[in-house]
Design a protein around this nucleic acid. Structure first.
Lengths: 235, 235
DNA sequence: CAGGCGCGGATTGTATAAAGTTTCGCCTGT
DNA sequence: ACAGGCGAAACTTTATACAATCCGCGCCTG
């Protein structure tokens, strides 16, 4: 029952249609093809995937629970627009969880896993060389997910999936300069540390990697002028 | 938009009917009135809450995402039955997150919050004195949630809600002896440390509290004999 | 000419009905 | 007497129809 109880909701089932919808929309968001604030009409998506609104609705609700879609009552579903406060929380959570994850990954080290990681690094390098920004963004997130899968800790994996998806939106919204080439080298260093079973180095490199990503963000505090109005209105 | 964007899915909206269903079932599970493995028929629940199966379905899907309900395809929804491995993961995650949460809670210390915490402690003591095991279990979890709310970290709060709900099932399944009076004193000590703004003491007490809870569990590794069969069958 | 009011179109929320799947009971054959 | 298979009932899944809500546009009024 341990292995069979996994296909709960966000399992990689992919056989049923609602998963196809969810993963399709997720991929579009992670690849920055769907921008924050975009309206996700039920009929619209339903027609694309040849599905009824019932299925689209469940997929959107799952995405809402993951935090990458906002559902406003009687208004519809929209791609989430994380606030700077959200961004800080997401990265703080990642700084807490991911060093622990790499620690567990070291416990699971094996030729098979090292192979998977290095194959992934090759994919990342290739996409970057190709100048394929969308693939680069997606693969960069996938790297972190892969390490989490390696750790074998399914709860951390679930949490991290959520954090990665949100991070993708955050980076899209708040990144200062276009420096897409930053992460790949870090990833290689992390893999090297894992392969050498050097826990402390792996943790430290993961932490500094996350710090560098966050340092590239410009998290303007009051969020321009609109937030001012909302603040006054809220009080 | 920062404050208004909160009512996403698991918000304390409670005004719409699906939230009422979800919170009703959640309370029943947290109070150990619904036992693991119990079938949650859609018609059954729908009739109780006077709602159509459509609404029940969305509520159950949300609970499935929180990990306290398993939905098996074409079979229905059941109260989750966490495995010993799940239990270890849940408590490891709690040991990682909750010390950080109390740390943040210290930052938010204020007379109002201290009041809320102490009022909660009183409620816990009263329920325990009254011998109301169900209320005790629920309030014990609520304490941890309250601290998370105090921390102001909405992501940690969301993660912790999930972990607390699963913990309730785990304790029900794997607790060795009936020692319901264990937690209250610990909670009081944590509140005292928070009030004194003693970060290290608060973190340490939370950690030892969690360790004691887990130490009272009997996480039998192969889970009796049924798992043996499943293992053979899986291979 | 500006501002408010009301109606129409569109979209979501909810309920109900049809379709598919599983399970359990019963019956038959050996 | 027991194993195997057929069939019906119950349930979930999916689709569709209906009701409620909101947004935008035009018209009317001051």
């Amino acid at each position: 029952m341990a292995a069979k109880s996994r296909p709960k909701s966000d399992a990689p089932d992919a056989s049923d249609r609602v998963s196809r919808i969810r993963e399709g929309v997720t991929a579009a968001i992670l690849e920055h093809r769907l921008l924050p604030g975009t309206k996700l009409g039920e009929d619209e998506i339903g027609e694309i995937y040849g599905a009824s609104r019932t299925l689209v609705r469940t997929a959107l609700q799952q995405l809402a629970h993951e935090g990458i879609v906002n559902i406003e009552k009687n208004r519809g579903a929209f791609v989430a627009r994380p606030t700077p406060a959200d961004a800080r929380e997401v990265f703080e959570a990642r700084r807490l969880i991911e060093p622990t994850i790499v620690d567990h990954a070291v416990d699971a080290v094996s030729p098979a896993w090292i192979g998977r990681l290095q194959r992934h690094l090759a994919e990342e390098r290739e996409a970057e060389l190709r100048g394929d920004a969308r693939a680069s963004v997606r693969l960069s997130g996938d790297f972190h997910r892969l390490v989490a899968e390696m750790s074998g800790h399914s709860i951390y994996l679930g949490f991290l999936k959520e954090l990665i998806a949100r991070s993708s939106l955050i980076i899209l919204l708040y990144r200062r300069h276009d420096t897409p080439a930053c992460g790949t080298n870090h990833h290689a260093g992390i893999v090297a540390a894992i392969r050498k079973c050097d826990r402390e180095a792996a943790r430290a490199q993961m932490l500094s990697h996350l710090n560098e990503i966050e340092a590239e963000l410009f998290l303007k505090d009051p969020a321009a002028d609109e937030l001012r109005l909302a603040d006054v209105l809220g009080a």
